[in-house]
Amino acid sequence: MLEVKNLSVTYNGNIRALKSINLKVDQGELVVLIGANGAGKTTLLKALTGLVKCDSGSFANLDLTSLTDKRTLNRFCGSNITDKLLAEFGTSEKVFKFLQKAETDETKKIKGLSINQIKRLKTKYQKYATADLLKVPSYNAIMYGVAHVPEGRQVFANLTVQENLEMGSYRRHNVLKIKEDLKEVFERFPRLEERKKQKAGTLSGGEQQMLAMARAMMSKPKILLLDEPSMGLSPIFVNEIFDIIKSLHASGITILLVEQNAKAALSIADYGYVLETGKIVMEGKASELLVNEDIKKAYLGA
């Protein structure tokens, strides 16, 4: 689950783009942020991943089981302790689940580790888990499980489709797992497999959007930030993209979706926020927002 508290962004010293944003996305939820052009939606996402500087606020990803592989564990607690933990629990996922529980069961003994060591490890993990992501440089956001699909797709035009996807998994080291995930992605997006040796810049807008999303998925994120995926796409593709988002949602990923196409977005979301000139003016269950009179008038073209 993702929690944004009191986020403010100012451009050039006096243009307030975002004013004290408070936002929450529960685990597995699909939350949508709607608003007119210039309301600050893209700025918000950019602030979350550090592409834009904020004056204040915090952003925490409170569900940190990201990148569960041995190497990350190694880096986190050192190879000695990692080996002992793995010996006890089996897989790195189980180790992380163990670390997530803030309380230490003093009765349960782990071979080779003292109670104090375990306590320290857990505190360290808690710090890591509640870290303010706004203080983390952009290129490390992905290590905290946050994948951002930027506005305008931003695929690497001169790299092939396959290379783009490989860049998505840049920070992962388990080569076999990466290969598996690549296969999965190609199964889900057969069109991308057809074009896997083509340069990404030659793909159509809709295909590029698919590529951008697939690329983000390659990092196995816990949270997906999608910035206006339907922008500039033909209606057929818009439907396809929203179907894809729906299926991603179904597979359990937490998604924060920013969209101008309010109707389509609200109809697949769980919860919604309305952003107007940098402030959240309304929030609520997506189904309720869809039938709200003001929203209808302002964004749904009733």
Binding site: I142, Q154, F156, L159, E163, Y170, R215
Partner: peptide, 17 residues
Amino acid sequence: IAMRAVSENEEAAKLMG
């Protein structure tokens, strides 16, 4: 490949980690 990615699009490259 990361080098080529950076030369294409610095921002997107950052998002890849």
